[in-house]
Write a protein that binds this DNA or RNA. Structure first.
Lengths: 227, 227
DNA sequence: TTTATATAATAGCTTTACTATCGTTTATAA
DNA sequence: TTATAAACGATAGTAAAGCTATTATATAAA
């Protein structure tokens, strides 16, 4: 997943591969920017087309509807985080150190080097924080899950669970802790910025160190305890 | 908050108090059932009016739009959970025992005795699990927060944080753990039912005991560790 | 008994969420 | 190089969503 390389995502998510054409890449690029700007509810394919100087009908040739586009973007994010974890933990023996890196990646994903020119990963991270869970909180979740649309999140969770089990094979909730660390990272960045009384951490400018410290505390104290 | 008693919710959430009239109570009742049935995205005031044999215009006299109605229902739930915690922990000295009851309440809220005839708390719980976070994941969160629309969630979190601090005054993240226990309860019930690879617990029929056990494990092991 | 309020019925308007058709470019391949 | 297919833009059209407004009637309060 370096510059010029394709991200592999479930083919059912799109009608025509958006990574394969300039227009498709533009759809990805501008949908991230526009959803971040006006929110997912107000986002429409018509507004997106206007912003890109294209047409609604052209956007519909790539994605069936905005919900599938959201799953596409969220899946992209999960893949990107998985990729970052892989390259950052490569050659690192100690599983505790690897879990530390995973937590840092969850928190600081947006600050990492961009990989693909038409995806602003920093904006994408902000989008995931505020809109991400809408991808799988729908009436159609079971059908979509059957199609494999959430496989990237599952694989990411499994990756974290594997490291947790390497640290402590008797830890009883590795998957739950894995997904919870990811959700907590996003939730508490959001809470710190919008609903501060739901958390104890503060986020000043781009300083996410308190979120990182909290996740480290939660993760390692829980895993310790299993001994 | 017994039968016949009103739940106090922010007045900015509605145009006319739905608890004060039969039509208003019907709006509450049927919106819970209909959102649960078809999902929040497909839910409209027109469909709601049809189901209640009323009119769209009449619903609009009570709620400005479906988003504020959702916040209203979610706030109701937060209030209801707070109430359950209060009556169940009343007269209980030991804060550890009180935290146990709080966790049980988060998990088993839907099985508790109904308090108000026009609210099906069991269906409401299911709705909160699948749609709840949409109440505060919007572009308007800051304005709405300024209006005090999320005060009930904050108070609930504060209630849990107080108990955590009573158990262990040095615990550094009482609010975060409080809100996380609530979010985790809902998330992992949802994961167990729809995306099981994101968790380690299973939910068979209405048996939520594994979710309860996991939350107990997380909460008490973390708090222990602070000593 | 008047008067205010609540509701139902109806209409209408703009936007959203699509689908379809038809030229005109642009890439591909013979 | 030309034909030919695919992609795109332009345009039109439809049903539903998300409202607002008006009027008539039923009900409650003064």
């Amino acid at each position: 997943m370096a510059i010029g390389i394709k991200v592999t995502l479930n083919e059912g998510l799109y009608l025509k591969d958006p990574q394969a054409t300039v227009l498709g890449q533009n759809i990805i690029k501008h949908s991230i920017l526009l959803i971040d700007e006006i929110g997912f509810e107000a986002f429409t394919f018509k507004k997106l087309a206007q912003k890109m100087s294209s047409t609604e009908a052209s956007v519909y040739r790539y994605f069936e509807n905005k919900h599938l586009l959201l799953i596409y973007l969220v899946s992209w994010y999960w893949e990107w985080v998985s990729y970052l974890i892989d390259i950052h933990t490569m050659n690192i023996e100690d599983p505790r150190r690897r879990l530390e890196i995973i937590i840092k990646t969850f928190v600081y994903a947006s600050l990492d080097n961009p990989s693909i020119e038409y995806v602003n990963e920093s904006v994408l991270h902000r989008l995931i924080i505020s809109e991400g869970t809408k991808a799988y909180h729908t009436k159609s979740v079971d059908e979509e899950n059957k199609e494999g649309y959430f496989i990237n999140y599952k694989k990411l969770t499994q990756k974290v669970a594997d490291v947790i089990l390497e640290i402590e094979p008797d830890f009883p909730y590795p998957h739950a802790l894995g997904s919870n660390l990811f959700e907590m990272a996003n939730n508490h960045i959001y809470f710190a910025q919008h609903l501060p009384r739901l958390t104890d951490v503060t986020v000043v400018k781009d300083d996410l160190s308190q979120v990182e410290a909290m996740l480290m505390y939660f993760a390692f104290n829980l895993i310790e305890k299993a001994k």
